[in-house]
Computed example of a mutant assay.
Amino acid sequence: MSDLCKPRLPAIPLHRLEVPLPHLLPFAIGTFDTIGPLSRAAFPHRHTFYEIVYVTGGRGAHVLDLAHRTLEPPQLCVITPGQVHHWADADGLAGQVVLFNEDFLPPDSQDAAALRTLATRPAHPPGDESGPIAALLADMGREYRELRSGYQGVLRASLHILILRALRAGAPDGRLPDRDRADELAAAFTRLTGRPGAARRSVGSYARELGVSAGHLSTTVRRATGRTPASLIRQQTTLEAKRLLTGTRLTVRQVASELGFADPAYFCRFFRRETGLSPGRFRAGAVGKHHDPRIGSIAAAPDDP
């Protein structure tokens, strides 16, 4: 049978955090029950966001990228964007679930690389870190529920500590991995894309500034971050667009021009593809009625192109 005649297999469902407006925090923490039924989904799916699960009770198995690991609580599971996972024959799952987008991580940290390291295993016991991890998650839950002054900074700092403790627990000798040259180059590239005008620059121009070839930059950045340089540039461009739309009175056409888009219509298509909203709707929501910055669940959405 030719490829044209073969039935098309259904796409793996892609879930994303429900954070359509800029004042909604791209972070959530709760139990399996408060986060929602998709937090214990029994069907293979993937995310646009990171998920850290600290399982303290229940039975069954966690399946991550086809690797099957029987649950033996307490266990820590880390899922990164794009990985396929599900819970198999799970019953009575208990514990804490932490969900967050990459833009919630400190911009110059190595947390994203650490999370990819942790995600190489479907689950692992926290060992001596079990008590500190449980206490840290409890404190993060209180900060998230109470929304006291400075809670965003506390949650970011606590998430960083949680990642370090998870790394320490997963290291055979309790030592954290050293930062290598690939991480250094990727971090330098990320810092450059944070400057104004990132959308106007090509990957080649960044490579020249960093003193490497475009091919080497692409290979190194992908190995260190799991993403292409072009996707990181798109991410930074989207972030700058959000800043301009919410923090200035520039028209959409002017925002497009500031970002280096010659065609405002193309900018609108770009922004909708990256955020799910038109620039106008995004801005209207940002300056409208204040909403609770917490989110309580994840929702299914069509696959990204």
Rank of each mutant, 00 (worst) to 15 (best):
H85S: 01
R156G: 08
G260K: 04
G285N: 14
T220M: 13
V255W: 12
P37T: 10
H124A: 05
H85K: 05
H216E: 04
V53M: 15
L4R: 07
A199F: 03
L176H: 14
H47P: 02
L99I: 02
A265R: 13
A113Y: 05
S257I: 08
E146H: 10
A187I: 07
H47Y: 15
R195K: 12
E209D: 14
P302F: 12
D263G: 02
L25I: 03
L259T: 11
F271C: 12
R69N: 03
H62W: 05
L232Q: 04
S231K: 00
S205V: 12
T70K: 11
C5T: 04
L164W: 10
S39V: 08
R273M: 10
D128M: 07
P106I: 02
L239T: 11
L71N: 04
L24Q: 15
S213P: 08
A119V: 02
K6H: 07
E18M: 07
Q235G: 10
R201V: 00
G150Q: 07
S158G: 07
G194S: 14
A198Q: 02
R175I: 05
W87A: 08
D292I: 07
L250C: 11
T275K: 06
L115M: 15
A300C: 08
A187R: 13
P37I: 03
A88F: 04
S149H: 08
E146F: 05
P196V: 04
A88C: 01
H85V: 01
S39M: 06
P20Q: 12
R175F: 08
F100K: 09
Q236C: 09
A199C: 05
L167P: 02
L115N: 07
L66K: 13
A186N: 06
R227A: 00
V84R: 03
A171C: 03
T34A: 15
L76K: 03
P37S: 12
A11F: 15
S205I: 01
N101Y: 00
G174H: 04
L14D: 14
T275C: 09
R243Y: 09
S158M: 03
